[in-house]
Write a protein that binds this DNA or RNA. Structure first.
Ligand SMILES: [Mn+2]
Ligand SMILES: [Mn+2]
Ligand SMILES: [Zn+2]
Ligand SMILES: [Zn+2]
Lengths: 143, 143
DNA sequence: CATTAGTTTTAGAATCATTCCAAAAACATG
DNA sequence: CATGTTTTTGGAATGATTCTAAAACTAATG
């Protein structure tokens, strides 16, 4: 009946980064690291967990997202004030962001290159380059 | 004693964009559009106003910043969750951002170019390209 | 298996930037 | 000055996030 490998690999993956594979962390990891990459907010993920019968508090979702981010399983993306998104794609890449439907879409690394990175201010070192291409839905023709 | 032209040009500038030059708006404009470009948060600007003996509510500062942004006198910059910055430099340019001291620095347009802008998702049009180069203060050697 | 110490989760309060509201003030016009 | 409109404002409301201290859980030990 029950899936024989409900957390295939996830337990090892958590252990590998030094996080105990608790029920909550496993359930959230399962939601996050399923097929395909995702960009979710804390509230969103909490909603999905609740919807999937997983009992977990919002505080734990925040804790877990930050822990996952700290160990490199997630990346935090800031595109609008007030809300953070967590990205399961931790490779170097950039984003399209549609403010209308708050949708984040990955831009494959090769499709966007920066030429001539400027020298950072004296006494500082570059830690990251974030490019957000903001888009608007075309008028008319909508489904 | 008092400066003979305390709001040189500002009144006309506000009228030109269809905003009444009220006491509050003039005072805020004066703080914002003095020499040099600035990146300020609402709380920051409110603090400056209060410090300059200008009586203005925080609500009005928010209203004014958004109005100025709507008419193109300012640009809103999002680099961290929870807080918006307003940029007096409305020309196309990008930013360095130091998370440690929350300092935003302009990158002149010429010093940074994007090659091969990717095609936006079907049904959307690009409205803006925002590049944030995050930096960290170098360890040691500090004053 | 029972004890114990350390870790994780949790509900609920607290924070903080921002927005909302309805009343007061300022302004423009006749 | 009278009147209608725009602005300002204090204070309440919102919403995401963080904090707190207590409860639940785990691992290790005897
Ligand atoms: Mn965070
Ligand atoms: Mn805004
Ligand atoms: Zn992404
Ligand atoms: Zn700028």
């Amino acid at each position: 009946m029950a899936n024989p490998r409900p957390y295939s690999g996830l337990i090892e993956r958590l252990k590998a980064v030094g996080l105990r594979p608790t029920r909550q962390r496993l359930a959230l990891a399962k939601l996050l690291f399923g097929p395909g990459n995702r960009h979710v907010s804390a509230e969103q993920l909490h909603g999905e967990a609740v919807g999937a019968q997983v009992r977990v508090s919002l505080a734990t979702v925040y804790n877990t997202l930050h822990q996952f981010t700290a160990v490199g399983l997630l990346r935090e993306v800031v595109v609008e004030p007030g809300r953070s998104y967590f990205d399961t794609n931790t490779s170097h890449h950039h984003h399209f962001f549609c403010e209308e439907d708050r949708n984040l879409v990955d831009i494959p690394g090769e499709e966007l290159k920066v030429e001539k990175l400027p020298r950072p201010p004296p006494g500082t070192t570059v830690t990251e380059v974030d490019i957000v291409i903001r888009v608007r839905k075309n008028p008319g023709l909508e489904g």
